[in-house]
């Protein structure tokens, strides 16, 4: 009886070695696809009436012209929103956000930034995020929430008027939406570069360990 219990515990202990549980991996890659679709179609929409004195090169936009870009954007938004909502709910419910992303202390962040810049930041234990990772991952979740809210405000400025009020007015919501996109793109560059520098972290996001 007791030996059986031990065996059970050993069996249960195996998944503990999993760095990224299946739900994280599935939602991560769905989010990656949705984000890319949203960004590329968003650039197409931006080009129809640029906020700044530049346009995105047509070849790297999705949809061919404004209507196509809008169709992609308003299709991929469901993927992004449903997946994102499921991620938030699961992240809070399982305690993963609390365990992985907290605490974030200024001294911890400063220490790890210094360590990273001098190439002394270790990645031996991928189950524990360093303070730079915690800050970036928590920050990008906040940006993700903001970009969805500003997007909804622009999509339904009358029906969801309180969301427009949250950002001030309709034109401001457009700027918020744009800068959130810029922040996500900047995150993507760093995120992908670091994943390639530490390939075992990429492997963990694909096969789990």
């Amino acid at each position: 009886m007791s030996s059986l219990t031990v065996t059970d515990e050993q069996v249960r202990a195996t998944p503990a070695k999993v760095i990224q549980p299946a739900w994280v991996r599935i939602m991560h890659w769905i989010n990656a696809l949705a984000m890319i679709l949203m960004i590329l179609s968003g650039w197409q929409i931006y080009n129809a009436s640029p906020l700044f004195d530049f346009r995105f090169p047509r070849d790297i936009t999705l949809g061919g012209w404004l209507a196509g870009g809008l169709l992609w954007h308003f299709a991929a938004m469901w993927l992004l929103m449903i997946n994102g909502l499921a991620y938030l709910v699961t992240g809070f419910a399982t305690g993963r956000f609390r365990k992985k992303l907290l605490p974030i202390t200024p001294s911890g962040v400063l220490h790890d930034v210094r360590a990273a810049l001098t190439f002394k930041l270790g990645h031996d234990d991928l189950t524990v995020y360093n303070y730079v990772q915690r800050l970036l991952y928590a920050g990008i979740i906040v940006v993700g929430v903001l970009i969805v809210l500003s997007g909804l405000a622009m999509w339904k400025p009358v029906q969801l008027y309180y969301l427009v009020m949250l950002f001030g007015d309709y034109p401001t919501a457009r700027y918020v939406h744009f800068f959130c996109m810029a922040a996500i793109c900047a995150f993507l560059v760093v995120h992908v570069a670091l994943a390639l520098l530490v390939p075992k972290s990429l492997r963990a996001m694909i096969i789990g360990r």
């Binding site: 890319i36 936009t61 999705l62 012209w65």
Partner: peptide, 18 residues
């Protein structure tokens, strides 16, 4: 014009990525 919605260079970018 309609084919442009999905066609050409824009889809090429997606194909490259995936």
């Amino acid at each position: 014009r309609r084919r442009f919605i999905t066609g050409g260079a824009s889809l090429g970018a997606l194909t490259l990525l995936t």
